[in-house]
Amino acid sequence: MTGRHTVEQTELAVLAKLGQVPLLRAQMAAVANIHRAAAAVRQHLENSVLRGAQLSWTSFVVLWVLWIWGEMETRYIAEEAGISKGTLTGVARTLESRGLVERSDHPSDGRMVLLRLSPAGEELMAELFPRFNQEEAFVSGALSDEECEQLAGMLRRIVGTLERDGEARRAELAEAAPPPPRPGGRRRREG
């Protein structure tokens, strides 16, 4: 449980609050439970296997991206990890100070930075990931292997929709109601 209330209590409270509002309730429940499940899983993994390695979720994801894909430009690491380049800068500095990642200049563009796992980072991931996977098995233990595959497939379809159509949808929504200026008066860049 990620909050004071169970999923069932939350769904009943939402129904009581919004019962008369015409909503797509099944879709609302699906997205709310994706969020709640993701937060609960993240919290469990941070407070179990990642705590022992002194890693935040974001640090682990950055290490995972580098472990799987190898050396990459920072902009692509941030994209793969689902974080901003600014967040990656802080995470990379921390991981570098711990000797888990190494940075180098891009061979053809001095403005770009490459990151890779250090030998210590490779060793950590090889030792850590089997324990991480055991916790993945724990959190999905109420599901059969077939149900896990079905769930993974459904979630892939949701992600695929956003990857394929999300940018156009956001542009459509912004055109209908442009977003307000950012705090501090900065405006979003066009295009």
Rank of each mutant, 00 (worst) to 15 (best):
L128P: 10
L143E: 15
L117Y: 14
D165S: 07
L143Y: 13
F138S: 07
F129D: 12
Q134A: 07
L117K: 01
L100D: 00
L100K: 02
A171D: 14
C148N: 15
D165P: 10
D109Y: 03
R131T: 13
L100N: 03
E167G: 02
R111N: 05
E73V: 02
L115W: 03
S97H: 03
G90V: 15
D105I: 06
L66V: 11
R93L: 06
E135C: 00
G110R: 04
L117I: 13
L63Q: 08
V101C: 04
E73F: 14
G153E: 09
K85H: 05
E163N: 11
K85F: 12
A92L: 07
S108T: 14
D109F: 07
G90W: 02
G86L: 14
A152Q: 15
E135I: 06
A92F: 12
W64S: 10
A120Y: 01
A92Y: 08
S118V: 05
L155F: 12
I77W: 03
F132A: 02
R75Q: 13
S104W: 09
A120R: 07
L100F: 07
L100H: 11
E79F: 06
L143P: 03
L114N: 02
R169Q: 13
D105V: 14
E149K: 03
L114E: 06
D105G: 03
L117S: 15
L63C: 13
F129I: 04
F129P: 08
